[in-house]
Design a protein around this nucleic acid. Sequence first.
DNA 1: AGTTTATTGCAAGTAATTCGCATTTAGATT
DNA 2: AATCTAAATGCGAATTACTTGCAATAAACT
Lengths: 152, 152
Amino acid sequence: MDRMPIQVKNTFNPVELRGLLRTGGLKATRSRLAILGVMRRTKHPLSPQEIIERLGKSFDQATIYRFIKKLQARGIIRQIDLRHNHAHYELFDLNDHHHLICMRCGRIEDVSGCEIEDAYNAILRSAKDFSEIRQHSLEFYGICRNCGKHKA
Amino acid sequence: MDRMPIQVKNTFNPVELRGLLRTGGLKATRSRLAILGVMRRTKHPLSPQEIIERLGKSFDQATIYRFIKKLQARGIIRQIDLRHNHAHYELFDLNDHHHLICMRCGRIEDVSGCEIEDAYNAILRSAKDFSEIRQHSLEFYGICRNCGKHKA
DNA sequence: AGTTTATTGCAAGTAATTCGCATTTAGATT
DNA sequence: AATCTAAATGCGAATTACTTGCAATAAACT
């Protein structure tokens, strides 16, 4: 394949998607590249069903769910809790960001720069039974401007 | 119908449980007092099924789920994402605390004192589409000491 | 090209949550 | 205390979310 220019964080090109999989010991199948492609080009967390919809053609759920598990175990994606009754996922982003979620309409906005990482050590020091923190999840639930206009 | 969250101090005795419900415009039935009782005396987040188990007698799921929704809408309980495939809930606690969750065995430890609240304003300032934050969720996922001993 | 092994697709299975509706009950009203 | 009414319950069925077993397929290594 052609050598691709160096990309900014998390702008995975096709080659990099392959590498991502290989590094994780995962085979790079057409489906998998397509799934990662969808996630890459969507800027908000996706549910498995949403991924299937975006893939266009009918796609087997089991395949998605199994793949998601592997991605998650390898830290390639992370799980986001939007408080719908199903999980959402997004590509792991080194620029740690979190989400503002509207409790009425579900609108999502990214918020960036939250120095939780700095708190890790303090938390570990105070923890009795834990020796390692691998990830965290931080979501803010509120009311978006639009919903704020219309009385509840 | 559903109202705005009401955050009441959490020093519940039986009488206060009644008041809690009344303030929320909810009828104080025997079942409801029992459910709140279970949540009060358990120090970790519970799933609807766990609540049913603890209630002893056979208990209708629909009743629990419906009640939980109302409690949540009123800010009496909050939802915790332990990344099992179902939601967990705990009584809302003004002493804001969060959870360390073991990614292997699911063990939970509380961590307290995380000054996220102070970040609310900063976050709102930087937010484009949000005018109000009502709650947040912060969970840390890691490996507990016990699981840390045994190699993965 | 051939072999190995991970991955897929399908169909069935389980778990989690919701809904509709007839019945009951808490709490306000008389 | 008896009555009234809206809210809550119980039940069964429905829906949604996710998982599993297994035979067929395709990636990656030789």
